[in-house]
């Protein structure tokens, strides 16, 4: 399988696919604007089939009210887990900052910082485990894949994917993307082209980041192991603060934190945040 990752597509760099290639597209991350894909279709050469996963999801919720109610409760659990975890991250980051500011003896400071960073990694790991547990419990209790309302859509999605040479994952809401990719059991064909949230969903650990803060969110599809993808980093991360960038890189090591700038074509072109906070 070939996975091609692009930078954000505000100024599109995606080009036409090879002649004869049919692309299955996922724009579910755009949520209610999912169907506004005419420009994307034209850029890709006009041979796309939108899997309409967001619309399918809403249809499932309308058709299967029992599952819809269960999902509402499940989402509330996941949101509360994320909120509580964010509180712990906040406290731990404050502790790290306080240590950085107040400790004076280099060896003491270094040891205290290392311990605090290790605690933060533990907080991340615990959260991912709890969230995975909650998702597993939900799947076991409700078996979404076995429900009539879902099965029909899964079959239709699989049929489109069988005829597609490439799966195109656009950006948007990474939580919605991950959810519908799982719900409809999207199995990529030989090639995958993805950007922004679409690329994040392919990693084995999705990390949210905004206003200079990072939070682990969930396991992704795992097609891009060992990477944390950071699109829009310039707008969301303190790129001029090596200390905090270094802390970010160490926090998610051994995975590489890759900055997906506008115009990046291919992971090998993405810049890497080093443990010292340098980006290169």
């Amino acid at each position: 399988m070939t996975v091609t990752v692009l930078g954000p597509q505000r100024r599109p760099t995606v080009g036409p696919l090879p002649a004869g290639t049919v692309a299955a597209t996922v724009t579910a991350g755009w949520r209610e604007r999912e169907a506004d894909d005419a420009e994307l279709d034209a850029l890709l050469g006009g041979r796309t089939v939108n899997l309409r996963l967001h619309a399918r999801w809403l249809a499932v919720l309308d058709d299967d009210r029992e599952l819809a109610t269960a999902e509402v409760n499940h989402r509330a659990v996941l949101e509360e887990l994320q909120d509580l975890y964010a509180l712990r991250v906040d406290q731990q980051e404050r502790a790290i900052e306080a240590i950085r500011r107040s400790a004076t003896r280099p060896r003491t400071k270094s040891a205290a910082l290392a311990d605090a960073e290790e605690t933060l990694r533990l907080v991340d790991a615990q959260h991912l485990a709890r969230a995975a547990e909650a998702r597993a419990d939900f799947d076991a209790a409700w078996r979404p894949g076995d429900r009539v309302a879902v099965r029909r859509h899964r079959a239709e999605v699989a049929a489109v994917l069988r005829d597609a040479g490439v799966l195109v994952l656009a950006g948007g809401h990474v939580g919605v993307l991950l959810h519908v990719l799982r719900l409809f059991a999207v199995t990529p064909p030989a090639d995958v082209l993805a950007w922004s949230a679409g690329a994040m969903a392919l990693t084995d650990r999705v990390v949210l980041f905004t206003d200079g803060r990072a939070e682990a969110y969930a396991a992704g599809l795992g097609l891009l192991g060992g990477t944390v993808l950071l699109p829009h980093a310039r707008r969301r991360l303190p790129m001029d603060d090596p200390a905090r960038l270094g802390a970010l890189a160490r926090r998610f090591a051994p995975a590489s934190c890759l900055v997906l700038d506008d115009g990046v074509q291919g992971l090998d072109k993405a810049r890497v945040i080093g443990a010292d906070g340098r980006v290169g």
């Binding site: 948007g172 990474v174 939580g175 949230a197 994040m200 829009h232």
Partner: peptide
């Protein structure tokens, strides 16, 4: 809002 989840 869901801003932290959205990467266009």
């Amino acid at each position: 809002g869901p801003r932290k989840y959205v990467y266009e």
